[in-house]
Amino acid sequence: MIRVVLADDEAMVRAGVKAILLADPGIEVVAEAGDGHEAVELVREHRPDVAVVDIRMPGLDGFDTTEAIRRACEGTAVIMLTTFPENAYVTKALRAGANGFLLKSGDPRELLTGVRAVSEGAAYLSPKVAARVIDTLGSDRMARSGEAREQVDGLSPRERQVLALLGAGRSNQEIGRELHLVEGTVKSYVSAILGRLGVRNRVQAAIIAFEAGLVTRD
């Protein structure tokens, strides 16, 4: 069971996010906070696997809350939520120690996938956020796109299918359902893909999937 502390100052938003999380029988929301200070105290008390934190909160914003949570409980991964996909927010969130970054307007499945991913020690960016990161990486984008296509060309057709779905934010379970594979086989494919691409986590693999044109950006 993945134990989650949820922090958002808007009660209706908090209720919506909680409902999405509780739709997964493997996730339990152990506590809710309306501000950053309360979130940090609840993390200290409950020692959850994941804290889902809104960026804009009174008193202690999401960035400071994330830093405080990471100091208070190193074992708790943090996912930051925002309405606005500002590039500066992504950079600042990752520097603050966030393990994931999601848009409130995104597909609810992304939230569940992100919570599962960070609880297992991985990093996670929603596909739309990953696309924005790629778009601001610099003037050598075309060169990187060519390199990404070369990397992807070294994968088998099935591995490319798995990578495309991974880049689209699908969980291992969802990939398995779509490709008619058992979850253990998907995990083996993902591990092999990370090794072949020379990357450490799903975020880096997703960026390559975007750069190689395996995932659309709309």
Rank of each mutant, 00 (worst) to 15 (best):
V5C: 13
L6P: 06
D9M: 11
A11N: 10
M12P: 01
V13T: 09
A15M: 14
A19T: 07
L21R: 10
L21K: 13
L22C: 11
V30C: 12
V30F: 14
D35P: 01
D35Q: 04
A39M: 03
E41W: 04
E45C: 07
I55H: 11
R56Y: 08
M57V: 01
P58R: 00
G59L: 06
L60Y: 07
D61E: 07
D61W: 03
T65P: 04
T65D: 13
T66G: 10
E67V: 04
E67F: 05
A68T: 02
R71E: 15
A72P: 03
E74C: 08
T76I: 08
T76H: 00
A77M: 02
V78P: 06
V78T: 11
T82F: 14
T83H: 07
T83L: 13
P85S: 09
N87D: 13
Y89Q: 05
V90G: 06
A93P: 09
A98V: 03
N99Q: 07
F101W: 06
F101G: 00
S105M: 06
S105G: 14
S105Q: 08
D107Y: 07
R109E: 14
E110H: 14
T113V: 00
R116N: 07
V118T: 10
E120A: 15
G121Y: 04
A122Q: 15
A122N: 14
A123N: 12
Y124F: 10
L125V: 11
L125C: 01
S126Q: 03
S126R: 07
V129C: 08
A130G: 11
V133M: 06
T136P: 03
L137I: 09
G138W: 05
S139H: 11
D140N: 13
M142P: 05
S145T: 15
G146A: 13
A148P: 06
E150C: 01
E150D: 15
G154N: 14
G154Y: 02
G154R: 14
R158P: 02
Q161I: 01
L166C: 03
G167D: 00
G167W: 03
G167F: 01
R170F: 15
S171T: 01
S171F: 01
N172H: 11
R177V: 09
H180N: 15
V182K: 13
T185C: 02
V190R: 13
A192F: 05
A192D: 15
I193Y: 12
L197R: 00
G198E: 02
N201V: 01
V203D: 08
Q204L: 03
A209Y: 05
A209K: 04
F210C: 06
E211C: 04
G213C: 02
L214F: 02
V215Q: 02
T216Q: 08
D218Q: 13
